[in-house]
Amino acid sequence: MAETIGFYLVAAMALGAALMVVMSRHPVYSVLSLLVTMFCLAVLFMMMGAYVVAALQILLYAGAVLVLFLFVLMLLNLNQEHAGRSSRSWGWVGTLIAGLFAGQLAQLFLRPLSPLWTSSSSAPAGTVAELGRLLFTTYLLPFELTSFLMLAAIIGAVTLARGRR
C-alpha cells in the first residue's frame, strides 16, 4: 500500500516536471525541471531494486549532464532565445502526434503480462557486485567499446568548440 502511494506521488511529480521541461519559456527553468524528473526516476529505480542505476542516475545525469547544460546556458546569450516555440499553427500537430503515440504505447503496455513480476522476493537486486560481475564478463565488449565512444565524443566536442582555424 505504501509502495502504491509512493509510486503515484513520485510519478505525478515526474510527469509534472516533464511537462514543465517541454513547456517552460526559459531554458534554465527547463533544465531545473528536468533535474526534478531525474530525481523522481532515481526514486523509482530505487523502488525497483536498481540501486546502482539510481546512484548513477543522480551522479551522471543530475551531476554531470545537467551541470554541463547550465554551463552552456551561461555561455550563450540568453536574450535571443525566447522565440523557442514554433508557429502556433504547427504546435498542436506535434502535440496531436505525440498524444496518438502515447495512446498506442499505453494500449501496448496494458496487455496482460506474464505473472513473473509478482514474485519480487526472488528478483535480483542491482548491487555493485552483481552489476560489476556482469559488466566485466557478459558485457565486456560493449563496455570496452564505450571507451571509443567517449574518446570520439571528447575529440568531437573539442574540435567543434575550438572553432575553425
Binding site: 515526474a14 516533464a18 511537462l19 521541461v21 531554458p27 506535434g94 502515447a102 504505447l105 499505453a106
Partner: peptide, 20 residues
C-alpha cells in the same frame, strides 16, 4: 509512466524549435 514520459519528450521535439 515510461510511455507517457517518452510521449512528452516527443511532443517537446515536435513543438519546440530551440536547439537547447
Amino acid at each position: 509512466l515510461s510511455g507517457v514520459l517518452f510521449a512528452i519528450g516527443l511532443a517537446g521535439i515536435l513543438t519546440r524549435r530551440n536547439i537547447l
